[in-house]
Nucleic acid binder design. Structure first.
Lengths: 252, 252
DNA sequence: ATTATTATTATCAAATTTGATCAAAAGTAA
DNA sequence: TTACTTTTGATCAAATTTGATAATAATAAT
């Protein structure tokens, strides 16, 4: 029984039960507890569940806008670092696209002092973050709302994005690999990402290191499309080589 | 029972009750009071609740969009009544326009159980209110955000609204008089109101009694445009006469 | 104000969980 | 096959979590 298989089993248990213990899973799958812990850690990084002491629990449907900012979460601090770094790429007077990922959202608090600024986004939390900042003009894409992502998706939204032009686009990605380029969880998200990429001079991809080398469900663009990658860990020599000379910003 | 599990339980209690005591929780969960205190401290740091001496109380809603809900305010309770009444005009399966006024926003909490429902709005608080309700599809107008109104305005938004059709439109108004009809604070708002009115079969105007007989800066439509007025006080005979036989819904 | 009562924080000890390291097992490619 | 990489499991020290106790702080009562 390999990781993928165990992952499925674990998620299946979690589908029925609210929480579970490491030993319990280990017994059920007849796998050592150490391995289960490793699995749970990986799955927690993918935000498929929440790690607790002694086990794991269902990932709560993150309802409020503030769900993104989770101080206790390790992945969240990593995202904050990336966000802080990405924010340094923005200059007063810029027009920027911001997509609806949590990593991109992490930029917001660092952008508030960069004024004037024009922000075009499909994310409600992003719009909310700048709502009361006088020096930042927010333009939100219209269309059908996706409740779980708290963002607007679909043709209408893509049309909206395309009717604007920005200096810089900042997008998150669910997967990034040399072989398959950028990949996303869903077609909808990929569409928005491409629209932003197509209407901006520069494209910055924000990607936390756990996603590098991984592929998600839908691949939507080659690595060549991006101006630079913003991430949180120094890349290995071979990873860098794969990026074909793309600039890489790394948080130290 | 680990921290995460207790956290959930505690939040669940706080969801129903306004405040609670440490010992009470300790007994309920069969956990030592010391541990509960530690939990409460952590949760207070996450701003999930407010620590009090001897217990904890509900945290103020952290959404940036809940600014309208102001219980202490007298005008707010009046608006709630109007909202409740207006909500009775909505039937499952309807497509409705909701504008960005606080009175219209007051409808939202009463609409949540009417499903399925399609809501088209230019208001971010309205969109946020329905975000997590699976049976309610939200469509938000795109365009420039107006920070003070927490809504989208302008040509782009008007175009957006016009591209949809609804059974019923619910709009607020800043002024309503027999002589000058409906009036608004700004041209932007008036534009949205008219767009909604023009694309809906029925137009319901929500207006608290203090605004009846008053005019605001910009008049944008005659009274004849509305299907019915929803308000909070019985109107005088002459007021009724002025309304030229329009239906009036009044909260008793 | 002063005392009594109750809540909070600090410190410690016991129990458990975890992460690191390394060895064994299972795949993989030549 | 062999050599090499990856995954898994075992062991144990380090870190967390929890509850008990004692000292301190805050509130209520007199």
């Amino acid at each position: 029984m390999g990781y993928q298989e165990r992952k499925k089993s674990i998620l299946k248990i979690l589908d029925k039960r609210e929480n579970m213990e490491v030993q319990e899973i280990a017994d059920a799958l007849d796998i050592s507890a150490v391995t289960i812990r490793r699995d749970l850690q990986l799955m927690a990084e993918e935000e498929l569940l929440i790690r607790t002491h002694g086990g794991a629990m269902k990932a709560p449907p993150k309802h409020p806008f503030t769900a993104f900012t989770d101080k206790a979460n390790v992945a969240a601090t990593r995202k904050k670092h990336i966000g802080q770094l990405a924010a340094t790429l923005v200059k007063p007077g810029d027009t920027i696209f911001l997509d609806c990922g949590s990593t991109v959202f992490a930029m917001c608090s660092y952008l508030k002092d960069i004024q004037p600024l024009r922000v075009v986004t499909n994310s409600l939390p992003v719009a909310a973050a700048f709502m009361d900042i006088p020096g930042i003009q927010v333009n939100i894409a219209g269309g059908e709302m996706d409740g779980s992502r708290k963002a607007v998706h679909g043709t209408k939204a893509i049309e909206h994005i395309k009717s604007y032009h920005a200096d810089k686009a900042f997008i998150g990605t669910d997967g990034l690999s040399v072989q398959h380029g950028l990949s996303a969880h869903s077609e909808k998200e990929a569409g928005i990402s491409m629209a932003m990429a197509g209407s901006a001079n520069k494209l910055y991809v924000l990607c936390d290191s756990s996603k590098i080398g991984k592929d998600s469900y839908m691949k939507y663009a080659p690595l060549s499309i991006m101006t630079a990658l913003v991430t949180d860990k120094e890349l290995s020599a071979e990873q860098l080589e794969g990026l074909q000379g793309k600039k890489v910003k790394v948080m130290k």
